[in-house]
Design a protein around this nucleic acid. Structure first.
Length: 435
DNA sequence: CTCCCTTTGAAGGGA
DNA sequence: TCCCTTCAAAGGGAG
């Protein structure tokens, strides 16, 4: 990842990400120059898929801010800072995501009709393959000519199915609420921008189910407990924790920390029951574990193989194994995209009627790229704070600690990879055979 | 039951 | 410094 310390400092700690983001946009522009006629059809079709994915929308001004032109980094950072400061201010006012104060924070998006980046509808080849398999009626064209995962599209797809968004409101799902204390206040998307969700199977627009409504709405803490929470390690809804919580109860794994104000704010909203006297869910008051901690006994990671380090995986019973059992598994902090996925997954699932995470993640990946800088910056900031908090909670922890604790995964996206891998063939066959 | 798939980003290690 | 690998989440699919 290109490093460009362009003066952003570590205010957001996302310089590099932003840079990479910009590069992608430039790449898009380049590719868009080679747009072929056949791609019109391709895009038209893929736009159908997008309609089901892109629930979205945004104001014209917001659209204008979308990635077409790399903007000064500082500019976006300042805007982002404004977001956070505003979010924090409103949070202090006692409001949780109060109103649509942030038109620039639409998590619902439609393809930008003028922007080569957003307009492309960009289905990655594998996504096309998979989506085509999943939704044959969409007739997702092949990825011919697509080198980039985001195929360019002429910015004239005004023939897209009109995206009509219902005015919707508070969604029970309020992801990232765990970060609400000082992070962002997403605001409510303009009411006229509610997407008319396209049934991915039939291609027929359908009225959004209540569960498909935007999760980015004000939500009082008391309401949190009533609904599932995608980011809800804080919300003890069945299995919905940012990190797994031992079912048998909660230990108090946190070392005593000296935290600055910002950290304590974050921690108070997430980790410290002592600082959270009003937890609405009757969470065990004696200790909420850091979500990154997973008891080995109930570790959700399949761990039956001997990929663990010798110290962590001993076949001979004994003190070593006991130690291992006692040693909590500290997970990696989530990165920006993971946070985004956690937040958006439920919505995408609802819209697409898909549940396969592989497919959902492909969609989310595309949406991630379609986010504006400001929108992504929020997640980068969250991730940065997450890492910061993580490092404070576990000073000695290293990502290396978790190496080998998970089944080794082959990571070859090589085009010549044989379609041996079960679903791999399904996901990538077309992509690998299209060029 | 276990692993794979898929996504992006962070981090570690080797060259 | 660059490149590669692993892991983080998620849940259906497949063996």
């Amino acid at each position: 990842m290109p490093q460009l310390n362009g003066g952003g400092g570590d205010d957001l700690g996302a310089n590099d990400e932003m840079i990479s983001f910009k590069d992608e946009g430039e790449q898009e522009e380049k590719i868009s120059e080679n747009v072929s006629a056949e791609r019109d059809l391709d895009d038209l079709k893929s736009s159908l898929v997008n309609e089901s994915e892109n629930n979205s929308s945004s104001s014209d001004s917001e659209q204008a801010e979308r990635r077409p032109q790399p903007r000064p980094v500082l500019d976006s950072y300042e805007k982002t800072r404004d977001y956070f400061s505003e979010a924090f201010r409103r949070q202090q006012d006692g409001g949780f995501f109060k109103g649509p104060h942030y038109p620039g924070y639409p998590f619902f998006m439609i393809p930008d009709l003028t922007n080569p980046y957003l307009s492309n509808g960009a289905l990655s080849p594998s996504a096309r393959t998979y989506l085509q398999m999943k939704w044959p009626l969409l007739d997702v064209p092949g990825a011919a000519g697509l080198k980039d995962s985001r195929s360019p599209t002429p910015g004239h797809l005004s023939n897209k199915v009109p995206v009509v968004q219902h005015a919707h409101h508070v969604h029970p799902l309020t992801p990232l609420i765990t970060y609400s204390n000082e992070h962002f206040s997403p605001g409510t998307p303009p009411s006229h921008l509610s997407p008319e969700i396209l049934d991915p199977k039939t291609g027929i627009p359908r009225t959004p189910h209540p569960s498909e409504l935007s999760p980015y709405y004000p939500l009082s803490p008391g309401a949190v407990g009533q609904i599932p929470h995608p980011l809800g390690w804080l919300v003890p809804q069945q299995g919905q924790h940012m990190y797994s919580i031992p079912p048998g109860g909660f230990r108090h794994p946190y070392p005593t920390l000296a935290m600055n104000a910002s950290m304590s704010s974050l921690v108070s909203s997430r980790f410290s029951p002592h600082m959270m006297p009003h937890h609405p869910h009757g969470m065990h008051q004696t200790g909420i574990p850091h979500p990154a901690i997973v008891s080995p006994a109930i570790k959700q990671e399949p761990n039956t193989h001997d990929h663990m380090s010798p110290s962590m995986h001993s076949k001979s019973p004994g003190p070593a194994k006991k130690e291992e059992d006692k040693k909590p598994h500290i997970k990696k902090p989530l990165n920006a995209f993971m946070l985004y996925m956690k937040e958006m997954r439920a919505k995408v699932v609802a819209e697409c009627t898909l549940k396969e995470s592989a497919a959902i993640n492909q969609i989310l990946g595309r949406r991630w790229h379609s986010l504006s800088r400001e929108e992504q910056a929020k997640y980068y900031e969250l991730a940065r704070k997450e890492r910061q908090l993580h490092s404070q909670l576990y000073p000695g922890w290293s990502a290396r600690d978790n190496y080998g604790k998970r089944k080794k995964r082959k990571r070859d996206n090589k085009p010549d990879s044989t379609p041996e891998g079960k679903g791999a063939a399904s996901y990538t066959w077309l992509a690998t055979n299209s060029f």
